[in-house]
Amino acid sequence: MGLIATPPDATVVSSTSPNWVTTRLDFLANWARTSSLWPMPFGTACCAIEFMASAGSRFDLSRFGMERMSFSPRQADVLICAGRLPFKLAPVIRRIWDQMPQPKWAISMGACASSGGIFDNYSMVQGIDTIIPVDVYVPGCPPRPEGLMYGILLLMKKIRGETFTDDRLRVEKLVGPDGLYLPPERVDELSEPFGNSVSQTRSS
């Protein structure tokens, strides 16, 4: 409770004024991008198994053009963090994210990637959005493959709403000189215990 999020600025900041031509170009670019989003499966734990099941014959990510898993970040479009992220893995995901060229998006798959999940302890990052910017959060522990696909479809919807005239869109958000990607108060706020974790402080 008490998470006060600043509402996103509704106005688009752009140096090119959008017009009919730019909207047609946007449509084309976004169609191309959504039709073949190559995922970078940053699979760590159980969610990775459900991700693999999504890629299997029954659920089949191939119909979205996503069967080509790109394990090299240089050739990937969307980083799907499937599984929990301990602190030891944090510099790794940060580096992988930095290595991905724009345009890139991130899907946080599962409760652990979104908020730390059931692991509210010394070793777990409480949500990868404290390390990298996330576009879509897919809840579940693990989310069903249908859930992951819904998240992917949401991402596609988000991409379709993008415009290249928005200057703030393809900006790299790097780790600052203090060694953090967000201000420390924000990291602490995002990582606060909630739900059952609040009472999990007594050992006996």
Binding site: T44, A45, C46, I49, G83, R84, P86, K88, L89, V92, I118, F119, N121, Y122, S123, M124, Q200, T201, R202, S203
Partner: peptide, 27 residues
């Protein structure tokens, strides 16, 4: 790189509450 502190977490849970933790070790 996947150290999740299972053994530490179990010290804060009742025995039946540890069962969901076990799903996530060998998933």
């Amino acid at each position: 790189y996947l150290h999740s502190g299972f053994e530490k977490l179990a010290e804060y849970r009742q025995y039946n509450q540890i069962i969901p933790l076990t799903d996530r070790t060998d998933y």
